[in-house]
């Protein structure tokens, strides 16, 4: 039986008709056509579907849609503002953290969640924060570097009174 769920995705109220056993990932991808969150395993092992739920990173393939109702969902599509990429996105490009790109949105969301929580992480903290996100191309080093560079950039922006995200 499909039911209507009200979701707050990227700051906007959205309605989706779905079965109670459907995942947030499927509803984002199929109903709302937000395909930036990828389906790499559908069993919470790869992290490609990572989104923020009330500010915390979750693998959206493991969140049932009723459990996401009336909570804040943030997806990769919301990170750039007015066409300007988020510092993590730009640094991922500049530092060579992007290859095939399939893990990239989930990776960026995990890093984004980390930096919301901890604006000045160590490399070990970065590695821990993205350890649920499998990347098969880069070996992670350039991703860690990108997150570090983004943290520095965001701190600079915050210090200058600019928007951090």
């Amino acid at each position: 039986m499909k039911q209507r769920y009200v979701l707050r995705v990227n700051g906007r109220g959205m309605e989706a008709a779905a079965e109670a056993h459907e995942s947030l990932l499927d509803v984002l991808r199929e109903n709302l056509r937000l395909t930036g969150s990828k389906k790499g395993c559908n069993e919470a092992e790869c992290g490609s579907c990572t989104v923020l739920l009330d500010g915390r990173p979750v693998v959206s393939c493991l969140v049932l849609v009723p459990d996401a109702a009336d909570r804040d969902v943030v997806t990769i599509e919301a990170l750039a503002t007015d066409g300007v990429p988020h510092p993590i996105q730009r640094q991922m490009v500049e530092q060579g953290g992007v290859q095939c790109g399939y893990c990239t949105p989930g990776m960026i969301m995990s890093a984004y969640a980390l930096l919301l929580d901890n604006p000045d992480p160590t490399d070990d903290e970065i590695r821990f924060a993205i350890s649920g996100n499998i990347c098969r191309c880069t070996g992670y080093g350039k991703i860690v570097k990108a997150v570090r560079a983004a943290a520095v950039e965001m701190k600079g922006q915050a210090g200058n009174g600019g928007a951090a995200s």
Partner: peptide, 17 residues
Amino acid sequence: NSLAFYLVPTAMDVPDI
């Protein structure tokens, strides 16, 4: 037949190269 059993290196397994 699942990434729960087939283990791919994560960021915690890879040193700085």
